[in-house]
Design a protein around this nucleic acid. Sequence first.
DNA 1: GCTAAGGTGTACCGATCTGTTCATTTGGTC
DNA 2: GACCAAATGAACAGATCGGTACACCTTAGC
Lengths: 186, 186
Amino acid sequence: MRKNKRDELVQQAMETFYRNGFHATGMDMLVAESGISKTSMYKHFKSKDELILAALKLREEQFHNWSAQRVAELASEPRDQLLALFDVLDEWFKEDTFKSCMFIKASSEYPEPDHPIHQQTVEQRNAMYEGVLTLVEAAALKNPEALARQLLMLQEGAIITAHFGNSKDPAGEAKQAAKALIDAAS
Amino acid sequence: MRKNKRDELVQQAMETFYRNGFHATGMDMLVAESGISKTSMYKHFKSKDELILAALKLREEQFHNWSAQRVAELASEPRDQLLALFDVLDEWFKEDTFKSCMFIKASSEYPEPDHPIHQQTVEQRNAMYEGVLTLVEAAALKNPEALARQLLMLQEGAIITAHFGNSKDPAGEAKQAAKALIDAAS
DNA sequence: GCTAAGGTGTACCGATCTGTTCATTTGGTC
DNA sequence: GACCAAATGAACAGATCGGTACACCTTAGC
């Protein structure tokens, strides 16, 4: 049972879940795509839910790493980095694999608040908020908690807008709105 | 085949889909909740997808009617009505049946762009945008299209934030941000 | 009271769901 | 090459999925 084999399985499952949905993706489909047998799959993961949790965790890691790196490349000052978050969103939206936010989708498909998958999405969303809050505080802006939540709202609204596809530049418009909020809090 | 019986079925199905998700809700569950037999259910609706489409349409009607009425009760001037949209959101969030936005959830569960259910959510979302745009234009604000989209982003961001539950007053914070954007466009 | 028509419920269909059983194959060790 | 444990794959459970066949029952018109 190689460790990297498990990682491959999670990566593959993550992409399929993201593209196809959670309930709509059966273990048979994942097994067929990965090439291994169902028995081996269940040797690596006790249940489908455990695989979903692993996929969400991987998604969070990859997205966080990529996002943090891109932001650091695009800007150095906290205030500019806050705005760069929206440029990173724009890059994401332009990927042809973009299909909304995996955590929003997961929390929709598992709406019961005590379900482990739902809880994990809530925790990841909190981590997202903490990240923005850290930047807002570093930029020494007023009402940091409220502003961080407002900026997060703009990001999520941009994601939904990009997903529905009725705007040509959701990230740019969200960035413009974010700039207005940040200027007002300077 | 009474017409209002069909309406009852759609209403019941709509609530169950909203609470429980689409894929996670089987026709057997809906049949059990409605009390009628499966045969009768399929006399009213050719397929599950048709029932979902009817449920989404009902949801849009009811939400639009309720929202428009509440906004009209809360404010008379277009600018104030734009802000009142967020007070209406707040009322919605405080209902104990609140479970995010049904259309966001539907478009997540049916991600294929040409799927009828996905298309219907896109159309509904466009109607939402047109409604906000009308108010923005009536308020004679600058860059009406972009501003309308930004305000819609704030609304959707507030919905996601309310759904994840890590803010005490998502609607209020979104309203405050909206006010800043509207003031800047006056 | 009879009959025709249509709504209704039961029982079922094949497909698919998550998860398991078990015989076989594989690979490492002596 | 012999041995053994681990990994594998096909086949299968039991449940549930969306959807249907068909017998039954109610009801309206005569």
